[in-house]
């Protein structure tokens, strides 16, 4: 067995003839908070979607606890239940209340009795500060609140790893803070996270590992302090200079 929760091996993805991901290799260990940074179109989101099998990789392997998930060695649904995902556009179920959004997956996928699922949901909704709004529908709450509910929904499934696909990109600056605060708390509590983000402050201060992507390849990766402060790759330096 491998010590890594997640291993990505020689992953590539084509959209038609366009190669979006080129031979990507990287690992995620228990408790890692990995930030994936890079310009738009560099393949960050596609990488995350491939990891959650929302996109089918063209070639390569994704090992979850040493087992390949791309070939159907483990059921897709069971794997996805253990890998939480938070989307840029929230994707809360519009026909359900905030509470039901956090219950439905536990009840239908994990087959947890409703009462127990409700308790878990209430616990995580409390954690993200959304307890007063459990009866609201997604359309009745703000963007930042939606994203916090989406995080609670993912946490309610008690995932081993949580993927964030630009969780704050659709939010105004005021709401970015409330979502980042929740993510920071999770990181401090030891949640394993993989975060695609444009928030350089978060990448530098919260994450334990930074991956810089450019044109479908990992151009540079390593300790956030080193990469953010003293990047080796000139492209990384150029990219970061636009933020700092």
């Amino acid at each position: 067995m491998s010590e890594h929760i997640l291993e990505v091996r020689h992953l590539s993805k084509f959209f038609g003839k366009n190669e979006v991901l080129k031979d990507i290799d990287f690992n995620v260990s228990q408790g890692d908070v990995t930030s994936i940074i890079g310009a738009s179109g560099s393949g960050k989101s596609t990488l995350l979607r491939c990891i959650n099998l929302l996109e089918t990789p063209s070639s390569g392997e994704i090992l979850f606890h040493g087992k390949d998930v791309t070939g159907g060695g483990i059921s897709q649904s069971a794997y996805r239940a253990k890998v939480g995902m938070v989307f840029q556009s929230f994707n809360l179920f519009n026909n359900m209340s905030v509470l039901d959004n956090c219950i439905i997956g536990q009840q239908r996928v994990l087959k947890i009795p409703k009462e127990e699922a409700k308790e878990t949901a209430l616990y995580f909704l409390g954690k993200v500060g959304m307890t007063p709004y459990i009866n609201a529908l997604p359309r009745q709450i703000s963007g930042g609140q939606k994203q916090r509910v989406a995080i609670a929904r993912a946490l309610s499934m008690k995932p081993e790893i949580l993927l964030f696909d630009e969780p704050t990109s659709a939010l105004d600056p005021e709401m970015v803070g409330e979502v980042l605060a929740v993510m920071k708390t999770l990181a401090e509590e030891g949640m394993t996270m993989l975060v695609v983000t444009h928030e350089m402050g978060f990448a530098r201060d919260v994450s334990s590992h930074v991956v810089y992507m450019a044109d479908g390849v990992i151009a540079e990766e390593g300790d956030p302090k080193e990469i953010m402060v003293d990047p080796k790759n000139p492209r990384t330096r150029e990219f970061l200079s636009r933020f700092l």
């Binding site: 239940a81 995902m85 929230f90």
Partner: peptide, 10 residues
């Protein structure tokens, strides 16, 4: 996105 949200929780 609704389908993706549902798929993502398994």
């Amino acid at each position: 996105g609704q389908t993706e949200g549902a798929k993502a929780i398994g």
